[in-house]
Every structure is written in C-alpha cells, then in structure tokens.
Amino acid sequence: MATYSTNQFKNGLKIILDGDPCSITENNVVKPGKGQAFNKIKAKNLRTGRVLERTFKSTESVEAADVDEMNVEYLYSDGESWHFMEPTSFEQYAADEIAVGEAVKWIKGQEVCVMTLWDGAPLTITPPNFVELAVAQTDPGLKGDTAQGATKPATLETGTEVKVPLFVNEGDILKIDTRTGEYVSRA
C-alpha cells in the first residue's frame, strides 16, 4: 500500500480519506512555536465532490489514492453501463450510473470525455465543456414576442430539457455549455 507522509502534502495530491479518493486543495502547517507541527488540509472527495477538512499530526502518513485521468470517447450505453474507449489503446471501460452522473445529460456518442479512474475502475466522467446537440422537440416561438431574454423550453436529442431563445426550431443543432447547462448559440 503506497502512502504519503504529511511533508509530501501539496495541492492536487490524491489520498484516501474515509475510504474515498480525495484530492488535496489546501495544505497549511499549524505549528505552535517550537512544538509539534500539524497539517490542516482541505480535500475534495473525488466521488461526491464534497470538500472535507482534516488535521494530521505531522510525519503521519496517509494512504495514497491510485487515481488516473485520461481522455476517452463515449461509445454507447446498454442501459446499465456507459461504455467508453481510450482512443490510442482501444481499451474499453464500462462506467456505472454513479460514475457517469450528470454527464449522461450531454453525451450521445463520440464525445471525448475526461474519465477519472480509481484503482483502474471509472470513478467520474466529465463531459466536454461544450457539446453540440440537436433539438428533438420545442414549441414554435410566438411571432412578435422578441423581448430580450425571452426563452422557451426545448428537449434535446439526449432527452435533456434546456431553455432556449424563441427563434430556435426543432432540428436545429445547438451549442450547450455542460458546466452550466445553458444554451450558448446555434451551431
């Protein structure tokens, strides 16, 4: 089992806390004068996204998390798993619902996503920041109702509903920001 000592702590280091892989986001040494030092850290739980605060007696060691990141292409879903392929090795990975999470709203196939692996198994899938998706269904915009900022709901081909400007029609290809879930432009 690989471990890190507190003096190796730095931002971005991946460690195991409460059985989950976490990434250190802040590391401060607390030292009362000449005495025993302590490391106060903040770490982001890579599975849940929650931020934890922890303190360690310095020179204590912590289990290292075997976490990797790679770019993968989305292939297809069989309903239970979402299948991705690493494009140079052609190796395929099956991510479960928890790992895919919100990404499922934005991917239809062939998008290049960032996959985080923990002990070789998919942990999280991050879709591209921008995706282009077709509008599957939307009501026609009312003529003359062009006040700025007016929007209507539209259902994309992935089944996700987004707010779009009134001029958008069924079949249009839209550019969507996956981080905010907002319409950017017509592609």
Binding site: T55, F56, E60
Partner: peptide, 10 residues
C-alpha cells in the same frame, strides 16, 4: 467531551 477535533495520528 468538548468536541475538539482530534488530529489523525495524535
């Protein structure tokens, strides 16, 4: 007893 955090390793 007083809910003071106990550092890991102490």
């Amino acid at each position: 007893d007083n809910h003071v955090e106990v550092p890991q390793g102490l």
